[in-house]
Each structure stands twice: as C-alpha cells, then as structure tokens.
Simulated assay, not measured.
Amino acid sequence: MKNIFFTIALLILASPALADSVRCRGQIIEPGVSKYEVLKYCGTPDHVAPIGSTTIKSNNVKVETRTDEWFYEKLDYGKDYVIIINGTQVSSVKQLD
C-alpha cells in the first residue's frame, strides 16, 4: 500500500506545470510571482518585448508600471513560453504552440 502512495506522489511531482504556469528549476512560476523569482529560477529571457505601461495617480503621486512580454525557449519539458510581467510581478504565463 505504501508503494502505491509513493508512486502516486512521484507522478504528481513529475507532472508538467499547470496551464497558466511553468516550472523552472523545480519552482512553479505563476501569476503573482515576483520578477526577481522569474529571473532567479528561469534565467534571463531569450527575448523581451515592451507592450505598454500603466499610470496610477494617487494623492499627487504618479506611479508608472511597465508591462513586458518575456519569451523563453525550451522551458518546462522543452516547450516555449511567454511570461507577462506587469511592474514587478507576473500577470500571466502562456505556453506557445
């Protein structure tokens, strides 16, 4: 019985990351993860494309956040991914076909 649970646990750990996430060096990169963690675990992106910015005004203070697409080739099981970084956090992760 213990062998069955051990086998199931191994299969779960070895399975690919969820559709809106990617696995880098054993860590799951998903929306909400910091830009720092993406760089730490996935490394430098193969290509970065700025796609816009957002300005927030509050109490006479303007804060502008930049949104970029980070393209990675051959991550999780050799697939290509784009990670959208909004400011300092991941806002989405997409597998490219």
Rank of each mutant, 00 (worst) to 15 (best):
E37A: 09
V38M: 05
P45H: 10
Y77M: 08
R66F: 10
V63L: 13
K57D: 05
F71P: 02
S91I: 10
S34C: 01
S34K: 09
V33R: 13
T88E: 15
F5N: 06
I4W: 12
G26Y: 01
Y36R: 12
I56D: 11
V90N: 03
L75R: 04
D68V: 10
D80E: 09
T88G: 02
P16D: 00
R66Y: 07
I51G: 06
E69V: 09
V61H: 14
L75I: 00
D20K: 12
K79V: 06
L75E: 04
Y36E: 13
I12T: 01
R23F: 01
G32K: 10
I51E: 14
I29E: 10
Y72V: 01
S91M: 08
D46G: 09
D68C: 07
F5Q: 08
G26S: 02
G26A: 00
G43M: 08
M1P: 07
Y36A: 11
E30V: 04
K62I: 07
Y81N: 00
S92A: 04
I4Q: 12
A49G: 07
G43D: 03
Q89H: 13
E69C: 11
T65F: 14
D80N: 14
K94F: 02
W70C: 05
G26I: 00
S91D: 13
Y41C: 05
I4D: 14
E73Y: 14
D76I: 01
V33G: 06
K40F: 12
W70D: 05
K74E: 14
G32I: 09
R25P: 08
T44C: 05
N60M: 14
P16T: 03
